[in-house]
Computed example of a mutant assay.
Amino acid sequence: MSKFLHFIVTFVVILSCSLLNPSLTAQAATGAIAVYEQRIIHSPDGIGKYYMGREIAKVMGYTGAGWLERPSREGEEQPTKIVNVLNLKPNDVVADIGAGTGYLSFRIAPLLTAGKVLAVDVQPEMLEIIELFKKEKNITNVEPVLATLSDPNLPSESIDLALMVDAYHELEYPQEVMQGIVKALKPGGRVVLVEYRGENPFIMIKGLHKMTQKQVRKEMQAVGLVWRETKNLLPQQHLMVFEKPNTNS
C-alpha cells in the first residue's frame, strides 16, 4: 500500500469514528488512550457514554428541584445521619459537589462557625435557588460556585472535604471532575460519596442511578484516592469515605 493510500484509509477510519464520538478525533491525533466509550445502543436512562464499564446516567435537571426538597426526604434518605458522621471541624471548608438546591449545604453550614460550604453545581438555575435560600435562611457561609461539566472550578488545596450525594453517577466527565477535586483537596482531605446501593435489586431506583461499592472504589482509585471505610448506616445508600494521601507525612 502506498503512503498516500494508507493516509486516505486512516483518515476515513478516524472520520467515521469521530461521527460516533467526536472526542476520538483528538485522541487519534495525540495518541491518547480513550478514557470513555460511546455506544449507539444504550439504556434510555443513560447518555450512551461509558466509563470503566459503567454507563453514565442522565442528569436530573433544575426542574427536579422540588424532588430534592421533598418533605419525605429525611425519612427516606436520613440526610441528618450523613451530616452527623462527617466529623466536621468548625473551620472546615466543604465542597458540596452537585449541590442542587443546597439541601445538604444548608444543613452543614451552621456547623462551620469559622468555615464555609462551597455549593458547586453546573446549572445556574440551581445556584439561583441557593441564593434565594441564603436570604430566606439568613445563612452567609454558603458560597455558590458555577462549575463546568469537566471542572469543579475550585482552587488548589482549598477544601477539607468534598461531599457528593446521589450526584457522582451523573457526572458526564467523572475522571476530569474527580481530578479537579483531588487537586482542590488539602493533603489528607476527604471525599465522601453517597450512592444508592447497586448491589441490591430491591432498591427501587433506576439502575444507572445506583452504584456498587466495588465500582465506586475502582473509579476513585483511578484518580489516586484511597478508600478508608464504607458506612452502611443509611436505609438504601452506601456512604463511602476516601482520602487524598498526605505526601508530606
Rank of each mutant, 00 (worst) to 15 (best):
P79I: 08
N232D: 14
F133D: 01
N141K: 07
T10F: 06
G188Q: 10
M178K: 01
F106E: 06
V165M: 13
E131F: 04
T212R: 06
V94R: 09
I203V: 13
L239H: 04
L127A: 00
A65D: 03
L233F: 03
C17T: 01
D160Q: 12
V120F: 10
A184F: 05
I56K: 05
V85G: 03
P124D: 10
A57D: 03
L112H: 07
G198V: 02
R217S: 13
T148K: 09
A57M: 06
Y62D: 09
F242R: 08
L233D: 12
L127D: 00
G66A: 07
E69W: 01
L163G: 00
N200Q: 08
T148Y: 04
Q213G: 05
A147I: 01
L225T: 03
V120N: 06
G115R: 03
G198E: 04
G207V: 04
S23L: 14
G188E: 12
Y62T: 08
R39L: 07
V241M: 14
R54N: 06
P22K: 10
T113I: 14
M1N: 12
E143M: 10
I139P: 07
Y62C: 06
Y173G: 00
I203W: 07
G66W: 06
D166C: 06
R39E: 11
Q221K: 09
A119C: 03
A57V: 07
Q123V: 05
G53Q: 03
K231E: 11
E74A: 13
Y62N: 06
G224S: 03
G61F: 05
V177D: 03
A57S: 14
P201N: 10
Q236M: 02
A119S: 13
S249T: 14
N21A: 15
L88G: 05
N141S: 11
V83Y: 08
E176C: 04
I203P: 02
T140G: 07
R190F: 10
E199D: 15
G46R: 00
S249P: 05
T148V: 00
G102R: 01
Q215H: 10
Y168M: 12
D92P: 04
L161N: 01
W227M: 06
G64C: 04
A29I: 15
Y36L: 09
H169Q: 14
T30N: 12
P245N: 11
N153I: 12
Q213E: 15
N91K: 14
V192C: 07
Y173N: 14
L118T: 02
I181L: 08
E76F: 08
M164L: 15
